[in-house]
Design a binder for these strands. Structure first.
Lengths: 207, 207
DNA sequence: CGTCGGATTAGGGTTTTCCCTAATGTCCCG
DNA sequence: CGGGACATTAGGGAAAACCCTAATCCGACG
């Protein structure tokens, strides 16, 4: 796994330098880009860390980049730091999920604290995603028939009822049931339900 | 149940009149207040509807009122409409959960659409709350002992293990278990787990 | 003092689940 | 064509859960 990194995208050279100094002297890995295009070329999926965006940049604007990333499923926390922001833009950014929207010139300590909050959120978010992906991959390893049985077990059906619905014998249902319990690493219906519900929220594709 | 109502809090008389006209001619119930104090006196808990707030008012400001309501557990959607807003205030409002933050003068149609969105969110939110409160009240009707057994059933323990943990006989566990299943209106462990998980999210006190 | 709710235990029977072994047929891949 | 994954069925026994009735004890309430 890569090291958590703050990606700073700003067309202003002095701002980029400032961030490089502010973050690296505080032991935080930082990479800077002068425009959205450069950033997108360097960004790899599942990169831990967060993103600091300027609003007005040549090419794609900060808000556009935010939308683009959201559509691509990138959920690293985003912090806006801009010189010429107005209220509608700030509202749009925060409504779209930005952690905060700060105006230049800014208080170093405040921005440092916000970056740390972003990194913390990302770590927490990533931790939960990992949990869900573990479940999701186990769920994906079920055969179609096992999935059909699983749905009905979750719904509270008895083996006898499941056998009727699927037009198979109770014995077969028992086998599928035992298999899926083993694959999902649970030993009771109660655990099974909880694990399955967890895996349904995070509908992310498993490797 | 009271009728969904838009509560407009603004110290500017002409703005209040404008909202009364705009909303009532569109068939939306509206009540206006010139300051936070007046609104708080009139507001009753569990009122369906939403709130339109001005930022700058004599006495408590819009942001302060928002925080006050949040602390009191009032979760009606809030729409800010203000004349002298700046970026930090807008960000604070939206981060605190406001649906939007609009500057005067505003587009009637846009604000009307936002108000309708607020009302829709409130209705949806209220619907889910009702579901959870049904579960919560049933959960509250359990005796302490039944709750202890419930926890362990949810955790996937066998009756034998539960009996050991609680230092009672298996027969007693069976009785408690049957009672709580009946009180919670479920007929299988699978349903039991799902109902209980639903009731835990919405940790609101039941009447 | 009688009554009622809550907690406890018991017996006895049915149903369901769980676990083991074992076998058959199909389909696909190397 | 052999092997492997998948789906299917079966028998049998142990364990657990479910359902019914019945009884005791205790504290609270009118």
């Amino acid at each position: 796994m890569r090291k958590p990194t703050v990606f700073v995208v700003d067309d202003d050279e002095s701002t980029r330098e400032l961030f490089r100094w502010l973050l690296s002297t505080n032991g935080i890995a930082v990479e800077t880009f002068c425009c959205a295009q450069d950033f997108l070329l360097a960004y790899r999926a599942n990169q831990p860390g967060c993103i600091v965006l300027d609003l007005r940049m040549p090419g794609m604007s900060g808000l556009e980049l935010q939308q683009h990333l959201t559509r691509r499923g990138v959920d690293n926390p985003i912090l806006f730091v801009t010189g010429e922001g107005n209220v509608p833009q700030a509202v749009a950014a925060v409504k779209a999920g930005a952690v905060d929207f700060i105006e230049k010139p800014f208080d170093y300590r405040q921005v440092l604290a916000l970056v740390r909050e972003c990194l913390a959120r990302d770590a927490e978010q990533r931790r939960r995603l990992d949990e869900r992906q573990g479940v999701a991959s186990r769920l994906a390893s079920l055969t179609p028939r096992e999935r059909e049985v699983l749905e009905r077990v979750i719904a509270g059906r008895l083996n006898r009822e499941i056998a009727e619905e699927l037009a198979i014998s109770i014995k077969t249902v028992e086998v599928h049931r035992a298999h899926l319990m083993e694959k999902l690493q649970v030993s009771s219906v109660a655990e099974l339900v909880q694990v399955t519900l967890l895996g349904q929220e995070g509908a992310a594709g498993a490797p």
